[in-house]
Design a protein around this nucleic acid. Structure first.
Length: 278
DNA sequence: CGCCAGGTGCGAA
DNA sequence: TTCGCACCTGGC
């Protein structure tokens, strides 16, 4: 199936670190495990070629997942109007989109990400999905969708440890229990403001400011949050001599307001992917 | 071996 | 309130 697009950089969006469960194929396409299906997607100029084990409503699924209906050109112009300091980075980030993922999966992913490495995070996610996720066959290969919260309701702390998540085992157990007990309603976050939703998320052990910000950015499209990680800290220190998380936070928020999260993501992507590849 | 990875919780000051 | 440190695990 073909989809006409503009201002979209599939490779950058997929490989920049927002998505854990994907594979790059030899033909340059990407196979990505979404919440309800597996898709294979390839970009050629302004056309996306999309295949999936489930083509039902596929166009809307892809548009929603890659946030293709949002006007990023307008957002980037707004960012530049706030300050031109990152204009080079913004130009290099053209076509980069903020992913729209399932909240539960995002929560589990980023709790596991704390003080962890990407290959190890990916390994744990796959171990969980392989045991509790729905099996999907696509192009003669088997994939496992990420389970939802009720699928994991009987998983003990000890069993979480078998997924190689280490000391994060109890954090995962706690949040899964709270969601299943209806102590936490993930849908409610959609209608909450950023301050309240940060507080709700950070009230759980294993979710600090970084993890909570990633959840709000990638699952709820709240762009006024700041996942300040080691890469952004390094960049801000080396290029602007701004040190300390609070100083970075104040500076970015005062400069970029409602799009601070996107600016931070551009910096992260530039520093971690674009520079490293040169 | 030691150090680090997309941080966070905890106890001590 | 802030500060330093330990932490599962795997790779180098």
């Amino acid at each position: 199936m073909k989809l006409d697009i503009k201002n979209f950089d599939l490779k950058n969006t997929v490989t920049c670190g927002q998505i854990f469960r994907y594979e790059e194929e030899i033909d340059g396409s990407y196979t990505i495990i979404l919440s309800d299906r597996v898709i294979n997607i390839k970009q050629k100029n302004n056309i996306l070629y999309i295949d999936s084990n489930n083509m039902n409503n596929i166009k809307n699924v892809v548009i929603d997942y890659f946030d293709l209906d949002r006007d990023y050109e307008k957002i980037n112009n707004k960012i530049i109007s706030y300050s031109e300091e990152f204009i080079d980075i913004i130009n290099l980030s053209t076509g980069f989109k903020m992913i729209h993922q399932s909240p539960f999966e995002t929560i589990i992913e980023y709790i596991i990400s704390a003080n962890n490495s990407v290959p190890s995070i990916r390994n744990s996610l796959n171990l969980i999905a392989n045991k509790y996720g729905k099996k999907v066959e696509f192009k003669n290969k088997e994939y496992y969708l990420f389970p939802n919260s009720s699928d994991l309701k009987d998983v003990t702390v000890e069993e979480f440890r078998t997924f190689k998540v280490g000391f994060r085992d109890k954090y995962l157990y706690n949040i899964v229990q709270k969601i299943n007990n209806k102590e936490i309603d993930l849908n409610l976050i959609n209608s909450m403001n950023t301050t309240d939703s940060l507080e709700l998320l950070m009230n759980n052990t294993g979710i600090g400011p970084k993890v909570a910000s990633c959840i709000l950015l990638f699952a709820y499209q709240k762009f006024d949050v700041f996942p300040i990680d080691t890469w952004v800290k390094k960049y801000m220190l080396e290029n602007y001599n701004i040190k300390g998380e609070k100083n970075i936070r104040d500076y970015i928020l005062n400069t970029y307001h409602e799009y601070s999260g996107i600016v931070i993501q551009y910096i992260f992507n530039y520093n971690r992917n674009i520079i490293v590849k040169k």
